[in-house]
Design a protein around this nucleic acid. Structure first.
Lengths: 376, 376
DNA sequence: CTGAAAGCGCTAACAT
DNA sequence: ATGTTAGCGCTTTCAG
C-alpha cells in the first residue's frame, strides 16, 4: 500500500497486516555500556530489515515513508521483507526523530455528557484522517490538581490541544497571557475572542435570546433560567441573552428564577426544577430555560415529581440538541449546536496551526438553530 | 516535588509550574549532517540545563527521575535551574530510551453511548494514577477499515490496550489465535474465556435470566427480546439467559418476539418497539427486554408512539443502568452493570500484565444487579 | 555521589 | 537511485 492519498494525511506508507512473527533479530550483542535491547521488541529494527533485504536503512526508510526515489524493484524487495518479517515501524523512534508525537490532546470537562461526546467524535474524525490520534483527558477527573494540562504540550506528549473545558480555557487565558498564544491549542465552545487564541463556538448571546423569545412568543412570562456557573463566559453570554429577551419584552426578572448549578448532569437539573417548583404558587415559573439538554432532561423529571405538566404548566427549553432530546417525554424544544462541526472545525483549526505555526488562525462562530418540539 | 508516593505510579519527579521562558539555548551550531535543531523546542534540552547548573546530564536525569543518589545541595541546584528555565522533559526522547509510550489504548465501539463513557472513565482514573494517559479510539468511526488497531501496539504507539468493542474483540480472537495472547491487551465486556486473553465482564447469561425471571414473576408471558447482533458472544449469552428463563417457566417463545438490531442507539430501540407493537393484538408482547438502556429508552419512546402504556400494557426492562435510566418516564427497571469497576478492573489487569509480562492474568466476572424501578 | 559515554530506532542531509 | 552517517534528547551502565 503506497502513501495515503488523502490530502490532509501524512504521507507515510501504511504497513498493515502481515502478522507473522519476526525472524532472528540482532540478538543482543551485549556490548559494554549503553542499554542492551531494552527497546528492542519482537519486530526487529529497520536495520535488520535493511540487512535482510540487502539494502541500506535509508532505503527502507524511504520505502516505508513512500518517498519517490526508489526503484520499483528495490521497493518490492523491501516491501517483501517487511511483509514476511512482520516488521512494524517503531513510532517512538520516529517521533523523537521527527520531533512530533502525532497526538492531539482533547480536554473535556466530562465525556459522560453526550454533548461533549459528539464534539469529541468530530475532532477524532478529522484528526485521524490527518494521521493523528487522540489523547483524551477528562479534566473533571482530577479537578483538584494544580497541574496544567498544557504541560503535556511542552513535554511533547501531544503536538497540539483542543480544550472543551471552560474552566481550563479560562485558566489558560489567565495563567499564560502571552505564552498561551504560542502554544498550539484552540478553544472550543468556551472562548474569549480578546485573548487571541483560535476558537470555535456559537453566538451564545443570540442563541439564548432566541430560546427565551420563543418562550415569550408562546405566552410565557415567568421564565426561569437554570444556568451553569456564572464564572464561565458562555454562561454569562447566555444569561445576558436571557436578560435581553426579557428586557425587550418588558418582562420583570426575578432573582428567584435564576439558578446556577455547578454540574450539568440530570440530577442537577431535577433538583433545580424541584426547588423552583417549591416556590409559592404565584412565584413559581411557567417556563424553564436550561442551558444544557442534560439539565433539561433532569428538569422534566423534577417537574414530574412536582406534578407539573409540560408544557401545560411549565414549558421547558433545553440547549445543545443531543440525540436524547428527541426521545424524552415530551420531546424537548432546544437550541441546537452543530456539535459534530464544532469538533471538526476545532480540529481543522488546530491542524492548520500545526502545519504553519505562523498562520493567523481565525476564531469561528457556527450557526445555532432553535428546534421546536413539544416541551415548549 | 520528590518521586510520587502512589504505589502504582511511575517514580518520575513531576516538574510542574514554572512557566517562564527558557534562556539561551545551544543555538543551532549548524554542524554538517544530521538534523539541526529540528526537535529543539523552547524548553532547551537536558544538556542545556546540566551545563547551566554545572553538572552532568546524568545528574539532571537522576534529579528529574527522583533517584536517590544525589547530594541535596546538587539536587537543589538542578531543581532551581529547571525551575528558572522552565525546562520540561521531552517525553519523545524519554519514551524512545525507555521503550515505552506510557499510553494505554482504549478501543470503544461508540463513546457516544453513556455505558461505554462510564467504563472509559474507570479506565482513565486508574491509568492516570499509574502514570499512563489514554489513547481513545472509536472503532465505529471507520468501521470499514481493514487495519488492525492492535498494530498500534506493535508500532509502540501504546504500551497496552483495552478493547470494549465486541467486533474488535472477536476479530482479535480470530485473527491472531496465538499472538493475541502475546500482545498486552485485555478484553472488557465482550470476551471468550477459552482464548486465554485476560478479561473482565459480567455473567451475561445469569443477568439476562434474572431480568426475564422478574418479568415472568410479575405475570408477563409474552416477552420480547431486543438484542444486539447474535454474532457477539454477550448477545448469545443474554439470548440464552432469556430462553432459559422462558423454558424453566414453560413459556412459549415466538420468533416474532426476538428482534436483533445492529446499533444500540435510541432510534433503533424506538423502531424495534414500534415494529413489535404493529403485531396483531394477540401477537403483541406484554413485555420487552432490551439488552441496553439506550435501546430501552428508545423503546419507551416507541411505545408512547404506539399508545401503549408502560408498564400497564407493556413492561420494559433495560440493561446497564446508565444514569439516564432513573430519569426517564417511567424510570427504567434494568440490570445494573458495575461500569466504573469494569473499567477500573480492566485497567488494573492490563497494568499488572505490563508490570510483569509473564504474569498469569486472570479473567474476572463482576456482579450484576437487577434494579427495579417502575417500568417493570 | 557524580561524570562520561553508549546507544534506543529512526529520518534526512549529504555524498556517490 | 542508493548508501553513509549524524544526530533527535534522554536514561543508564560503568568508572571514578
Amino acid at each position: 500500500m503506497p502513501a495515503q492519498p488523502h490530502p490532509e494525511s501524512a504521507s507515510r506508507a501504511e504497513v498493515d497486516e502481515a502478522d507473522k512473527a519476526d525472524k532472528g533479530d540482532e540478538a543482543g550483542k551485549d556490548k559494554p555500556g549503553g542499554a542492551r535491547g531494552v527497546a528492542t521488541a519482537h519486530g526487529g529494527s529497520i536495520a535488520a530489515v535493511a540487512r535482510r533485504a540487502g539494502v541500506s536503512v535509508a532505503t527502507v526508510s524511504r520505502v516505508l515513508n513512500g518517498h519517490a526515489n526508489v526503484r520499483p524493484a528495490t521497493r518490492a524487495r523491501v516491501l517483501a521483507e517487511v511483509e514476511s518479517s512482520g516488521y512494524r515501524v517503531n513510532e517512538l523512534a520516529r517521533n523523537l526523530r521527527t520531533a512530533e508525537s502525532r497526538l492531539l490532546l482533547t480536554m473535556v470537562p466530562d465525556f459522560g455528557n453526550p454533548f461533549y461526546a459528539e464534539i469529541v467524535r468530530g475532532i477524532d474524525s478529522v484528526a485521524r484522517r490527518a494521521g493523528y490520534f487522540m489523547l483524551l483527558c477528562d479534566t473533571g477527573a482530577d479537578a483538584g490538581r494544580e497541574r496544567s494540562y498544557f504541560d503535556l504540550l511542552r513535554r511533547h506528549r501531544a503536538d497540539g490541544a483542543i480544550c472543551l473545558d471552560p474552566a481550563t480555557v479560562q485558566q489558560a487565558n489567565r495563567m499564560m497571557a502571552d505564552e498561551s498564544q504560542a502554544l498550539p491549542w484552540v478553544a472550543c465552545c468556551e472562548f474569549d475572542p480578546a485573548v487571541g487564541v483560535p476558537y470555535v463556538g456559537i453566538d451564545n448571546f443570540r442563541a439564548a435570546r432566541d430560546a427565551v423569545r420563543h418562550l415569550i412568543a408562546s405566552g410565557r412570562r415567568r421564565i426561569a433560567l437554570i444556568n451553569s456557573d456564572d464564572h464561565y463566559l458562555y454562561a454569562q453570554q447566555r444569561r445576558d441573552g436571557y436578560l435581553a429577551a426579557l428586557a425587550e419584552a418588558g418582562i420583570e426578572m426575578r432573582d428567584a428564577w435564576r439558578v446556577n448549578v455547578n454540574c450539568l448532569d440530570y440530577e442537577a437539573g431535577a433538583q433545580a426544577a424541584a426547588a423552583l417548583m417549591r416556590l409559592s404558587r404565584e412565584a413559581a415559573p411557567d417556563a424553564i430555560f436550561a442551558v444544557s439538554d442534560t439539565l433539561a432532561v433532569g428538569v422534566l423529571n423534577g417537574l414530574r415529581g412536582a406534578r407539573s405538566r409540560v408544557p401545560e404548566d411549565v414549558a421547558v427549553v433545553g440547549f445543545d440538541d443531543i440525540a436524547l432530546a428527541a426521545q424524552v417525554d415530551p420531546p424537548l424544544t432546544t437550541v441546537a449546536q452543530p456539535m459534530r462541526e464544532l469538533g471538526e472545525t476545532a480540529a481543522r483549526l488546530l491542524l492548520r496551526r500545526l502545519a504553519d505555526p505562523q498562520a493567523q488562525v481565525p476564531g469561528v462562530l457556527l450557526p445555532h438553530r432553535l428546534v421546536i418540539r413539544q416541551s415548549a
